[in-house]
């Protein structure tokens, strides 16, 4: 479902003496439906960079990133827009939302984008928020003022509300208590069971142990020549 071949990435900082910073070389990865692959490596090794390249907000210098039938490294914007709507979900560590929009609508939005009936989408959103133990009095409020853990749960509810065939999870269990961590791990297991291909970053070793089928150390993709 997700296949990465010979992927490289560099940053060119035009306003800092045009410094060219190679950050990745020869990255390769394959995730079959129903599998979860964990990215490991020390801080700054390129875990998030690799994940952003799959999502398409970082450009690849060379190589290919196939998600389903789309090569994200070469696809036109509208193909990536369609991929993100139908196929590829992303739970990032940050929640970027229009201020003043109620949490329940933030969560329902991916379904509305897919054309799901508004009432049905909001119902599903309520079910997700309920499952993630977000107090009902918060559902009608904007998540911008929520605590880290509450925002994270809104983010997770939004990322799991549609049965994406491919999922990117960046620290999904960070800042959650034991109960909610357990809910998230179950959501991941259910996604795998229905055939989702997942790439995740987990600092939580026990979580990694439980849901990941394989681990990939991104340090192996560090550029050799430039070091």
């Amino acid at each position: 479902m997700i296949t990465i071949e010979n992927l490289s990435k560099r940053f060119v900082l035009h306003n800092q003496g045009s410094a060219v910073i190679p950050v990745m070389e020869g990255a390769a990865l394959h995730v079959a439906p129903g599998q979860c692959v964990g990215l490991i490596g020390s801080s700054g090794a390129g875990k998030s960079t690799l994940m952003r390249m799959i999502w398409g907000n970082y450009l690849a210098a060379s190589g290919s990133i196939r998600v389903g039938h789309v090569d994200v490294a070469k696809a036109a914007p509208r193909e990536i827009i369609a991929l993100r709507r139908d196929t590829l979900g992303y739970v990032s560590q940050f929640l970027r939302v229009v201020p003043r929009v109620p949490s329940v609508e933030v969560v329902a939005e991916p379904l509305l984008q897919l054309g799901v009936d508004r009432d049905a989408a909001l119902d599903r959103a309520r079910t997700m928020l309920h499952r993630l133990n977000l107090p009902e009095r918060l559902w009608s409020l904007s998540p911008t003022t929520f605590s880290g853990g509450e925002q994270q749960r809104v983010n997770i509810a939004r990322g799991f509300i549609h049965a994406y065939p491919a999922l990117l999870l960046d620290e999904p269990t960070a800042s959650l208590d034991a109960t909610n961590r357990e809910v998230v791990l179950s959501l991941i297991e259910e996604a795998k069971a229905r055939g989702a291909a997942i790439v995740g970053i987990f600092h939580d070793e026990a979580a990694r142990e439980r849901v990941c089928d394989r681990l990939i150390d991104v340090a192996a993709f560090a550029p050799k020549a430039a070091a």
Binding site: N15, R52, G56, N57, Y58, L59, P77, R78, I81
Partner: peptide, 27 residues
Amino acid sequence: DRLMVMKSGRVIEQGLTDQVLDDPQHA
């Protein structure tokens, strides 16, 4: 969804909005 950046009457960069903002290519 998409973003076009203009300078001195020309389009200097365009792409997905989050790509242009998170990984801008032009100086």
